[in-house]
Design a protein around this nucleic acid. Structure first.
Lengths: 328, 328
DNA sequence: TTGTATGCGTTATCAA
DNA sequence: TTGATAACGCATACAA
């Protein structure tokens, strides 16, 4: 494959001049410029990316860490990130952590290896202490997930508010026996969601019931399991607030199978307003997050850190919204 | 950031020896090896990826071209590709063509720029003639989508068979008035699917009805539009064969809204067996493609082209299967 | 406006 | 078993 030297020779010029043309620099005669273009064209020349990276100490690539691309939430986050990245000529290395601490650490090494210029982290697997030192090797933006103690660029939504309005909705419909489903738990995001739930309960003089708290439900199957557990109870909740639409859908499917009337006997609220929420027989009442916007904002934030001299468009404040459907 | 020279100095050795340790080469005393490790550790040294790329003329990165990651079909394809890539230390540059010819061409330039070692192309935007020459610059594997005239590594399923068994299913349930929905159309994949549809009709002495052929339906919204068009017809089909579960779901939702009984008044068959197919109130009868397996196979094929000397596991023949649910 | 020379951080070849 | 050196392809400081 032709290199810059070949182009220079063919055009009867020096490598430096060719380089100037490639990078659209001033101080090149129009005539030389054309001569270079012609030579490049004849040789089918394209600048070698690896050499440019080494020389410029920049890759024009960032790593985006997600648990799974098959989780629609993260697919839409990626879409938002990519939309902005593309505009600025940045490529995305998509890194699936698959919920593995080790993989997450491994991907962080990309920063040290200068394989990427920055990282967008959308879901945290390791304890923050184990990640902290690695953030010194390059710009990192936290997007969606967050760590309160971390002094790190973070693009997030008000999770407490989200679960608050969701729970409030159930309370206003007269429910007093409300179960709560979360996924991983433990993260600050999960804590905030729980806070919102508790706050709403408190406003109605209700206390949280331990036996109605479910963890580790992250998909449809998890939702089904939750409902089976509820069925086995003497004193059952009349409503469930769930941390994802997938889980909510699983709950509803299993409830229908058991002959439970939704929303009369059991009301369900989900999270994320994913396609599935609209599609389930009755529709799932859900907390809508502006996911793509969240991704866009994170990418702008990272760009700001990478190229502080540039100007970027203002991005609006992002908020969650309750979307009411048949499930409540 | 520390480089190999720094490590060498600290360890009191030469760059060459450090390099040997990094690359696990023979002929290094265990003692020197440890000294190098220690120095690397002290400096927090990681080999510079750009320099390695330039020197080795290899990036350990491939580009995967997809229309949109938010389309679950391609998300699962990515998942399959990534699962294998990860095992072999290959990174994925995810390139969304967004149905743009220009973007697709642009991504192909990555091969000329040696920014990636190879490409997996999952959906073709340009005419093949415009892409053909670009495939000389590095290994390209076609996955899912295909071009019959192209002499190119291709991992595909028998699309004709898929639509054939789907249509056959509708025919066997007594339907004679069957509509057909496709997405982009025009590709060889689309042509083969249409062939399968026609073949099944023919076996039942039926002819294709132009007014019941719908194009450009690729998502839920598209499905809804199709049903609205059908509602406006005098002579309506009693069944629809659709090229994606999303479209099928859209059709069903809109049908329910219009008070049409499914499957009695209208039977629907989808494609891909995506989560949505299981979740829609009745469940969508669908053609299941082993999407992830398809992605895995494509990645293995590309690995074979990149490193022919290696041995890879056998991958089985992949076939489509009909999954019957309530929608028919 | 163009050319010369140097270095970015590795790895491979050859010599010791 | 280890070290010196060249080369990968490019962009920039400096000289002309």
């Amino acid at each position: 494959m032709a290199n810059i030297e070949d182009v220079a020779k063919l055009a009867g010029l020096s490598r430096a001049t060719v380089s100037r043309v490639i990078n659209n620099q001033k101080y090149v005669t129009e005539e030389t410029r054309q001569r270079v273009y012609k030579a490049m064209d004849q040789l089918g020349y394209y600048p070698n990316s690896s050499a440019q990276r080494l020389r410029n100490q920049r890759t024009n690539t960032i790593a985006v860490l997600v648990p799974f691309v098959t989780n629609p939430f993260f697919a839409y986050l990626l879409e938002g990130i990519d939309a902005v990245a593309m505009k600025y000529g940045i490529q995305l290395l998509v890194c699936q952590t698959r919920n593995s601490k080790e993989k997450e650490l491994q991907f962080f090494r990309f920063l040290q290896a200068k394989q990427v210029d920055g990282i967008i982290l959308t879901s945290i697997e390791n304890r923050w202490d184990d990640l902290k030192t690695l953030t010194n090797f390059g710009p990192v933006v936290l997007c969606n997930d967050y760590v309160k103690e971390a002094n790190l660029a973070t693009i997030k939504l008000d999770q407490q508010y989200g679960s608050y309005i969701g729970t409030k909705h159930l309370l206003e419909r007269g429910h007093t026996k409300i179960a709560y489903c979360e996924g991983k738990g433990g993260s600050d995001l999960a804590k905030d969601r729980l806070e919102g739930f508790k706050l709403a309960l408190k406003e109605h003089q209700l206390l949280l019931r331990k036996e109605w708290m479910f963890q580790h439900a992250t998909n449809i199957e998890g939702g089904k399991m939750v409902l089976r557990k509820i069925l086995a109870m003497e004193d059952r909740p009349t409503a469930i607030f769930s941390g994802s639409d997938q889980v909510a859908a699983g709950i509803m499917m299993e409830a229908q199978k058991a002959g439970i009337q939704i929303p009369n006997e059991l009301a369900v609220v989900g999270f994320d307003n994913q396609p599935i929420a609209e599609l389930t027989s009755l529709g799932i009442t859900t907390i809508c997050q502006p996911i793509e916007k969240l991704g866009e904002k994170a990418m702008y934030r990272l760009l700001q850190m990478l190229f502080p001299e540039e100007q970027y468009p203002e991005t609006p404040e992002l908020t969650m919204k309750l979307i009411i459907r048949g499930s409540t």
